[in-house]
Design a protein around this nucleic acid. Sequence first.
RNA 1: GGACGGGUGGCAGAGUGGUCGAUCGCGCACGCUUGGAAAGCGUGUUUACCGCAAGGUAACGUGGGUUCGAAUCCCACCCCGUCCGCCA
Length: 425
Amino acid sequence: MLDLKYLRNHFDEAKTALSRRSSEAAAALEGIWQLDERRRAAQQEVDTLKNERNLVSKEVGQLKAKGGDASEKIGEMKKVGDQIASLDQMLREVEEALEKKALFIPNIPHPSTPDGTSAADNKQVRQYGEPLKYHFKPKTHWDLGTQLGILDFERAAKISGSGFVCHRGLGARLQRALISFMLDLHTQKHGYQEVSPPYLILEKAMVGTGQLPKFAEDMYALRDDPLYLAPTAEVPVTNLYREEILKFEALPLKLCAYTPCFRREAGSAGKDTRGMIRVHQFDKVELVKITRAEDSYDELEKLVVDAEAVLKALELHYRVLLLCAGDMGFSAAKCYDIEVWCPGVDAYLEVSSCSNFESFQARRMSLRYKDAEGKNQTCHTLNGSGTALARLTIALLETHQQADGTVKIPQALRPYMGGLEVIAV
RNA sequence: GGACGGGUGGCAGAGUGGUCGAUCGCGCACGCUUGGAAAGCGUGUUUACCGCAAGGUAACGUGGGUUCGAAUCCCACCCCGUCCGCCA
């Protein structure tokens, strides 16, 4: 959520910056401005009346204590009380309308976020390695995985319909190995604390990180309970500290978590239907940081490096993109995507998205810290995939495949695979 | 799921209709004291909103209600604890 005070004092600036993302978002600011004006006027009015009531009520108490007659004042205050009640009601309605509107406004892009309206405008900032040359035609992961008996799409569909995969045998072991490998890397080498959070999430937590109210159709909701399935560990992990005021010295908090992720992919019907490029359930190790306001951009750079370390260790070729204003997620101010090369599907696939949300999420969840002067400040929050397993698995299988249809396991992963060097039938 | 008990400031814990945003203690910060520290003494120490400010308003789990006035009375819900039932 944007800072309404900032908006009040820097309206044109905010509008210009937001228009880099979308013209609709910028236009919606006008309504916010008007509601904010109405809210302040109503609050001043009702506060004045409440002050009067408090003063007179105090007099009534004193009068009655002395045994005097207070019925006239009581009668007056009854009227004032009715006025207050109806004004309070009005104020509440304005506040609700304001909040509702404000929750739909996306974050303002950081000045270092480039202009642009689509993925074509994203800027590559660096790459690691080169696409490997093969003396045979690289197979797709669905062919490799099915032939090796480690990916079972057909039977997964019997259980859950399309868009699901079942990992079997060494495939299942590979998932477990990757999860352990990544968690160990981030906790032991990068200083993150491991968290294993709940996967079912209350609406207010989903609002806190920005998935709701705007993207309800992308979320799985339970039928009989007011809970959503976590679309990413970002939601439960960032919300751990909702409505807290953290100590200055405690920051930055660096957390990592493995969770499954559940996504309806409502807007993506028909896209990436083969294999497991886009599935409704996938595993992911997520990195989350909660920082002081002044540190968040340094922490973002380090976060990307931490995510890249996974791909380097697994001997994969990737590139890092800086997303343009129009292609960024709703809550982000600046975002890097890491895309890994997958020779079978002949494409770069996004395995990590590292974002600085600045105070956007923290304000929604009232997450603050005491600064050096002891004043309360809104925290900055960041997160990045470290990394998403479905696509990472695609890259692993397709990159390290051999002419005979077997797949070499990179050195770093072998200890987690019981020393196994090759996945074969 | 059932029964009982409880939710008040960083912690602990008073307060059962009116100068209570809230006693006291601990903790913390600053100052005095000291060679230095401890002790002691003094001052301060929740948050949000409105306002240039003075100041005002709101919040005692959440939401409603009663009242001129609610931390305090009534109703519903949520969370925590204990016991019972069920269960991996």
